[in-house]
Amino acid sequence: MAVATSASKWPTTWFNTFTTKSRLFTVNADKAVCDAWQLPKSAPVNAVPKAPVYVVGGDHDPTTPARTAGPAARAIPGARFETFPGSHAVFLTSACARKHIAEFVEAPGGVPPKPCEPDPGRPPTLRLADTHVTGAPYRISQAPWLAVPFALFALVSLVQLGAGALRGRSVTAFAGLAGVAFAGLTGQAVYGMASRNETALAVGVPASVGGPYTWIAVASAVLSVAALFHARRWPHIVAAVAGAGFLVWWFTWFL
């Protein structure tokens, strides 16, 4: 985040160019603005700002990490750069960051404040390695219906678990158990991340969701297909189709 911004010593690349279908909603939003305004490609210009510049960032920010924000700030004459414990948008999660920003706005040329002291009551910082970068959670927060495949998979798994257990169909029961376990673990992990850092879901989900938990969902879908081959009845067809469809949605859109 930069309280005052300008360009300075940009790399020799073209502006207004974006990778297609980025996992970060911020990149897609910027691209949408440039497309809507029909902004042409432009060459970089070594502009030097006259306004004081204060750049802040989280030490574990996956979108604008300190390793890139720091050099950008130092390329601006007289700019001040400071990192705070946290992920993206530290002004929302760090009281010390908000205090320093307010002091800079009030007196841009004042003496830089002392570094923030560690907060013993603060939850552990989310590291970049803890995050699987994807813009899907943010998009779901804007349009909850996009999460229908997840809800449908969880519902079908619950029905499989109950029906399989009552009728003694072990493969169906284990398929449902795996699906319910995946939904529960994923929900718990996402809730835990949101509790630790309310802005983290804007850039991704816990790494465990994109890793080991995903393979539990794969196991559920495979068992559903196995149950279908054992008894080709419409409930098994529905479960197999729901599992396969969910995995397509999960791997191609969510992750």
Rank of each mutant, 00 (worst) to 15 (best):
residue 133 V to C: 12
residue 135 G to W: 04
residue 136 A to N: 08
residue 137 P to L: 01
residue 139 R to E: 09
residue 140 I to E: 00
residue 143 A to D: 10
residue 143 A to S: 07
residue 143 A to P: 01
residue 144 P to L: 03
residue 144 P to V: 02
residue 145 W to T: 10
residue 145 W to Y: 10
residue 146 L to Q: 13
residue 146 L to Y: 06
residue 146 L to F: 13
residue 147 A to C: 02
residue 147 A to N: 12
residue 148 V to W: 15
residue 150 F to P: 00
residue 152 L to R: 06
residue 153 F to T: 03
residue 155 L to H: 01
residue 156 V to H: 04
residue 158 L to H: 06
residue 160 Q to W: 11
residue 160 Q to K: 07
residue 161 L to E: 00
residue 161 L to Y: 05
residue 163 A to M: 12
residue 168 G to Q: 08
residue 169 R to M: 12
residue 172 T to Y: 09
residue 173 A to W: 03
residue 173 A to D: 02
residue 174 F to V: 08
residue 174 F to D: 01
residue 174 F to S: 05
residue 174 F to R: 10
residue 174 F to Y: 10
residue 174 F to A: 11
residue 176 G to N: 06
residue 178 A to L: 12
residue 179 G to D: 03
residue 179 G to W: 02
residue 179 G to L: 03
residue 184 G to N: 06
residue 184 G to A: 13
residue 184 G to M: 06
residue 185 L to F: 12
residue 186 T to K: 05
residue 189 A to W: 00
residue 191 Y to H: 11
residue 192 G to Q: 13
residue 193 M to R: 09
residue 195 S to R: 14
residue 195 S to Y: 05
residue 200 A to P: 00
residue 201 L to W: 02
residue 201 L to C: 10
residue 202 A to R: 11
residue 206 P to C: 12
residue 209 V to W: 11
residue 209 V to H: 10
residue 210 G to M: 00
residue 213 Y to R: 07
residue 215 W to H: 14
residue 216 I to G: 03
residue 217 A to C: 13
residue 218 V to G: 08
residue 218 V to N: 04
residue 219 A to E: 12
residue 220 S to F: 04
residue 221 A to W: 04
residue 225 V to D: 04
residue 228 L to W: 09
residue 228 L to D: 03
residue 231 A to H: 01
residue 235 P to A: 10
residue 237 I to E: 07
residue 238 V to L: 14
residue 241 V to R: 03
residue 241 V to I: 14
residue 242 A to R: 12
residue 245 G to L: 13
residue 246 F to Y: 15
residue 249 W to G: 11
residue 250 W to K: 14
residue 251 F to V: 14
